[in-house]
């Protein structure tokens, strides 16, 4: 039961994750006076690499417990990147 609740909370968190992270990244938008394009590109790259790394480690550690072959999830999951364009 606790596992089920945790999983549901995780799903909710992941559904809203792009918007939550997008709000944080928005502070660095180059459209705002004083912000540089380089910093924005760097921050976006670091965030994306961090998400990719976390995903990679989770799949490496817990790959066997996924219901579905994991090849499909990550590319689809990583399309989140486009939401911060």
């Amino acid at each position: 039961m606790a596992k089920q609740i945790l999983r549901t909370l995780l799903v909710f968190f992941l559904i809203f994750f792009p918007f939550l992270t997008g709000n944080l990244i928005a502070k660095f938008t180059p459209y705002k006076e004083g912000n540089s394009m380089t910093s924005y590109v760097l921050i976006l790259t670091l965030v994306t690499l961090a998400i990719g790394l976390i995903l990679f480690l989770i799949i490496r550690r817990y790959g066997q417990s996924f219901n579905t072959p994991v090849s499909g999830g990550p590319p689809s999951f990583l399309s989140v990147l486009s939401l911060w364009e």
């Binding site: 999983r7 799903v11 996924f66 579905t68 990550p74 590319p75 399309s79």
Partner: peptide, 8 residues
């Protein structure tokens, strides 16, 4: 992707 990765 979230649905695929969080399915038990």
């Amino acid at each position: 992707g979230v649905a695929l990765l969080t399915r038990e």
